[in-house]
Amino acid sequence: MRYFVITGHKALADGSFKLDDIAGGAGRADILARCVNSAFMLSHGIRKDAEIYLVFEGGDDSPKTVRINGSLVRYLNPDERSTASLLRNALLKKIPEGKEAVSSPGVFVSKMSFYDVIDMLSGKGSFVYLKEDGSDVRGFDFPENPIFVLGDNSDLTQNEEKALLEKGPSTICLGPVSLHADHCIILVQNEMDRRGL
């Protein structure tokens, strides 16, 4: 399995945003929607071996985490607006105390924070921190069940990075220039695909 954890530092957790304004009023939820497409979309299908955790940290109802599982998800289309609609519908669900709610097939929502997510995932694989000053991906030996962690249009906060570093992640970079979060996901997927992993 390939896991992805993306923190939306200003992305509104209450789902009150308009689909026409996901880049502004939604706190850059457009970035998270694009990350979903990069994690799952193939030319004629969906990656079944991927799971993404989107942490919405903006607004009074935060944090919330939307989890999407590639082997279970339905109604996922390649356009940003319909993906944002799936995310908004999840954020609007009533969440039972201490549990996940199912929003639609393969889409789940909980009150987990970034810290909760990495604690929960720590038994499922090995963390890989995507950071500009990391080791070059071209020489990196991918672990089994990698858990890729990255920020949205902002780096992880000092506290988030500290918590992640306590998990002993590998730290890799994908090239000599800064890239969008969704492009980073595509590049690590491609690198693993090329190696048959």
Score class of each variant (00 low, 15 high):
residue 190 N to Q: 14
residue 25 G to E: 06
residue 34 R to S: 03
residue 130 L to T: 10
residue 135 S to T: 09
residue 148 F to L: 11
residue 143 P to K: 01
residue 2 R to M: 12
residue 177 V to W: 11
residue 85 S to H: 04
residue 8 G to C: 04
residue 168 G to E: 13
residue 38 S to D: 04
residue 122 S to L: 03
residue 172 I to G: 00
residue 82 S to V: 13
residue 142 F to L: 04
residue 172 I to R: 00
residue 92 L to I: 13
residue 10 K to W: 10
residue 97 E to G: 14
residue 138 R to E: 13
residue 8 G to M: 00
residue 2 R to Y: 13
residue 55 V to C: 08
residue 116 D to M: 07
residue 75 Y to T: 14
residue 9 H to W: 10
residue 69 N to E: 12
residue 100 E to K: 14
residue 179 L to F: 12
residue 97 E to I: 15
residue 32 L to H: 05
residue 68 I to Q: 07
residue 128 V to Y: 01
residue 173 C to M: 09
residue 15 G to P: 03
residue 58 G to I: 03
residue 128 V to M: 07
residue 155 D to N: 12
residue 127 F to C: 07
residue 88 R to F: 12
residue 88 R to H: 09
residue 93 K to Y: 06
residue 73 V to M: 08
residue 28 R to H: 15
residue 89 N to G: 10
residue 54 L to S: 01
residue 67 R to I: 04
residue 75 Y to W: 10
residue 114 F to L: 14
residue 32 L to Y: 03
residue 43 S to T: 07
residue 54 L to T: 02
residue 179 L to V: 11
residue 132 E to S: 10
residue 153 N to G: 11
residue 125 G to I: 01
residue 84 A to S: 03
residue 187 L to H: 06
residue 131 K to R: 10
residue 16 S to M: 15
residue 5 V to N: 01
residue 40 F to A: 03
residue 163 A to H: 10
residue 177 V to F: 11
residue 69 N to R: 13
residue 112 M to Q: 07
residue 147 I to M: 09
residue 115 Y to W: 13
residue 91 L to P: 03
residue 67 R to W: 07
